[in-house]
């Protein structure tokens, strides 16, 4: 009867059965809200982001926040040990997380973390990549598509320039990085399905 929300941001992934779904959700919300606010602050620091209309800023953040968080918290996933360290400091094995109902989403997250981690990005490269991730989010609901495309183009150019100038002998890194964008889209969809399942059938 325990209610499970096995998200690394959740400080109490397994709640006692006595707690209502609403209470479990509100407690989880308090855990993810600071992380979401940090993504908004990060977005505001992206040169050009605040020149977009507020409506489009909200749309990009709505569809891109999870993806940015996935990149940011990639290091919580240890593909070698097959463990995930939650923000509450507790480390869970792959087996125990499977038992908590994390199946294909978890596999995809490990896969993504391993691929991104293998690229060995520097912190500033990672930040620029997260900016690209955010402005590459789902365009549904975007009004000024041209302005978003222009910003995306500028950020991709900046990322390519940074990476190729640092590693002139490795022409494969930048394309490999761009290939992670569709992975993140897929992860985003899987994650949304998981959350909706909790909300519909708690």
């Amino acid at each position: 009867g325990a209610k499970v929300l096995a998200c690394p941001l959740n400080s109490c992934p397994v709640a006692p059965a006595s707690r209502s779904s609403q209470e479990v959700w509100e407690s989880f919300s308090q855990c993810f809200t600071p992380a979401v606010k940090e993504v908004v602050e990060f977005a505001k620091s992206i040169p050009g982001f605040q020149t977009l209309s507020q409506h489009d800023q909200v749309m990009l953040l709505k569809s891109g926040t999870f993806q940015v968080l996935m990149v940011r918290f990639c290091s919580l996933f240890d593909p070698k040990e097959r463990t995930v360290t939650f923000l509450n400091g507790q480390t869970y094995s792959l087996g125990s997380l499977r038992a908590l109902g994390m199946g294909s989403l978890l596999d995809s997250m490990f896969d993504f973390s391993e691929k991104l981690g293998s690229l060995g990005l520097e912190p500033d490269e990672m930040a620029l990549f997260m900016a690209v991730v955010l402005v590459s989010a789902d365009r549904s609901g975007i009004v000024e598509v041209g302005a978003v495309e222009q910003l995306q183009e500028n950020l991709i150019k900046a990322l390519r320039s940074l990476i190729t100038s640092r590693r002139p002998d490795d022409s494969t890194l930048f394309p490999k990085l761009l290939l992670r964008l569709p992975d993140l889209r897929t992860l985003n969809n899987q994650h949304s399905d998981k959350l909706l399942a909790f909300r519909i059938d708690p």
Binding site: T33, V36, K37, V40, E41, Q54, K62, T65, L196
Partner: peptide
């Protein structure tokens, strides 16, 4: 339930965080 971000309260958090910024700039 077609829009998870709205239903999860994410949109509210985002709007408030962005609007906070507008208020900061006005100050």
């Amino acid at each position: 339930f077609s829009d998870p971000a709205s239903n999860l309260g994410l949109e509210d958090i985002i709007r408030k965080a962005l609007m906070g910024n507008l208020e900061d700039r006005q100050e």
